[in-house]
Amino acid sequence: MLDDIKNKSVIVCGDFNIDLGNTVAINDFKNYMGIAGLCPMITKPTRITTHSATIIDNIYTNLHGDIINGIFMIDVSDHLPVFTIYDNFCINTMQDNSFVIIRDKSSKAIEDFREDLKRQNWDQVYTNDLNNAYNAFMTTLINLYDKNCKQIKICAQTAKISFDKPWMTNGLKNACKKKNYLYRMFLKKRTEDAECRYKKYKNKLVSIIRKQKKDYYTNLIDKNKGSIKNMWGVIDTVLHKGKAKIITPDFITK
């Protein structure tokens, strides 16, 4: 891969599973990236547990300029999200009549994808050659994903950002802030007690939010029982039908 990026502006992001904090074990990796002119943007741990803190998620680039790097202290997974902001990195805004490409991730598409996976012959994956097994698995997975979750071209005007969750009360939003605070305390202290308090609070909060969401739509359906049109409108909302939505913002507030 590195041979193909010479003389190009490159940003390589990912979970490299190579701990940059372990200087002894990563010499070859650092040398390869250095020869390609790629420098790591993240220098602090991205996966933190009670017994370890490793720098395994990173952004490598050969770009220069005004750069802001950082880590989001949020619990979307057991790895902390990383980011890099380039002030002089130009992104063309879409015109009103432009189009965007999204994937069909409807319930039917996902179910068809799942059934196709069940019907596959995976004999090529069960081999002693690890590389061949991985390549066979990924080739089959990607081909079936492309087959069932097709790309759809839609007008950019219909792709609106929406973060509104009407069942999220002010109390629940404040509870989410407390959950995030407990997570940051766990990352700071890295003790079993801090981890236990965070996980206990998070699990309880998730249960409450799920119940709140269920109750919200139950009440909404009850209120619209007298109108078939309104009832189907509620059902379409639950099934995420209608206008396509992109939930990724096109900005980061510093």
Rank of each mutant, 00 (worst) to 15 (best):
N7K: 10
N7Y: 12
K8V: 09
S9K: 12
D15V: 09
F16K: 01
N17Y: 08
G37N: 04
M41Q: 06
P45I: 02
T46K: 05
T50W: 04
I59G: 00
L63R: 01
I67L: 12
I68P: 01
F72V: 05
Y86C: 07
Y86L: 09
N92P: 09
D96I: 12
N97K: 15
F99H: 15
D112C: 15
D112S: 15
R114Q: 14
E115C: 12
K118F: 06
D123T: 15
Y134R: 14
A136V: 14
T140Q: 06
N143H: 01
L144P: 08
D146L: 02
D146Y: 02
Q157D: 05
A159S: 05
A159N: 01
I161L: 15
M168N: 04
N170R: 03
G171N: 02
K173S: 06
N174D: 08
N180M: 03
Y183M: 10
K188S: 14
R190W: 06
E192W: 03
R197K: 14
R197W: 07
Y198C: 00
Y198S: 00
K202G: 00
V206G: 00
I221W: 02
S227Y: 10
W232E: 02
H240A: 05
K241L: 05
A244C: 13
P249Q: 05
T253H: 12
